[in-house]
C-alpha cells in the first residue's frame, strides 16, 4: 500500500470528488438531456399520430368525394336518358298527329273528288237523257229507216258533243 501510494486520505478525496462530479453531471447534463429526449420522443410520437390521423381523414374525404361524383354521374345519366325518352315520345306523337292530319286531308280530298265525280256523272246523265229525248223526238217526227235511224243518232250525238264543246 505504501509503495503504491494508497492512502485513506487521498482515496477519500478522489472518492468524494468523483461522487460530487457524478452528482453535478447528473444535475447539469443528464437530467435536462434525459427529460428533453423523453419529451422529444413524446412529441415525435404525437406528431406521427397526428400525421396518421390527417392521412386517414384525407383518404376518407377523397373516398366521399369520389362517391359523390359517382352518384352525380348516375343521376346525370338518368336525366339524359329521361330527356331522350321524352324527346322520342314527343317526336312520335308529332309524327302520329301529322300522319293523322294528312290522312284527314286525303280523306277530305277523296270525298270532294267523289262528290265532284257524282255530280259530273249526274250532269252527264241529265245531258244524255235530254239528248236521248231530243233524238227520240226527232225520230218520232220523221219516218225513219234503219239507215237514217242510225245517222240520226250519230247526228244527235254529234250535235250533243259539239254543243258540249261550245
Amino acid at each position: 500500500m505504501e509503495a503504491l501510494g494508497i492512502t485513506l486520505q487521498q482515496l477519500l478525496t478522489q472518492l468524494v470528488s468523483f461522487l460530487i462530479l457524478f452528482f453535478l453531471l447528473y444535475k447539469l447534463a443528464y437530467g435536462p438531456i434525459m427529460g428533453m429526449l423523453d419529451s422529444r420522443a413524446q412529441k415525435i410520437k404525437e406528431s406521427l399520430e397526428a400525421a396518421e390521423t390527417a392521412r386517414l381523414e384525407a383518404a376518407s374525404s377523397a373516398e366521399r368525394v369520389e362517391a359523390e361524383i359517382a352518384q352525380a354521374r348516375v343521376e346525370g345519366q338518368k336525366i339524359v336518358a329521361e330527356a331522350r325518352d321524352a324527346a322520342s315520345k314527343l317526336r312520335e306523337q308529332e309524327q302520329d298527329r301529322a300522319r293523322e292530319e294528312v290522312e284527314t286531308m286525303l280523306e277530305r280530298a277523296r270525298t270532294e273528288i267523289g262528290r265532284e265525280k257524282d255530280s259530273a256523272v249526274e250532269e252527264v246523265r241529265k245531258e244524255f237523257a235530254n239528248l236521248a229525248i231530243t233524238a227520240a223526238e226527232r225520230i218520232v217526227e220523221r219516218s225513219l229507216d234503219a239507215k237514217s235511224h242510225s245517222s240520226l243518232i250519230d247526228k244527235v250525238l254529234e250535235e250533243g258533243l259539239s254543243e258540249r264543246k261550245n
Partner: peptide, 9 residues
Amino acid sequence: TDVNTTLAI
C-alpha cells in the same frame, strides 16, 4: 496514474 483515483472509481 495514481492508484488512489482508479481505486476510488
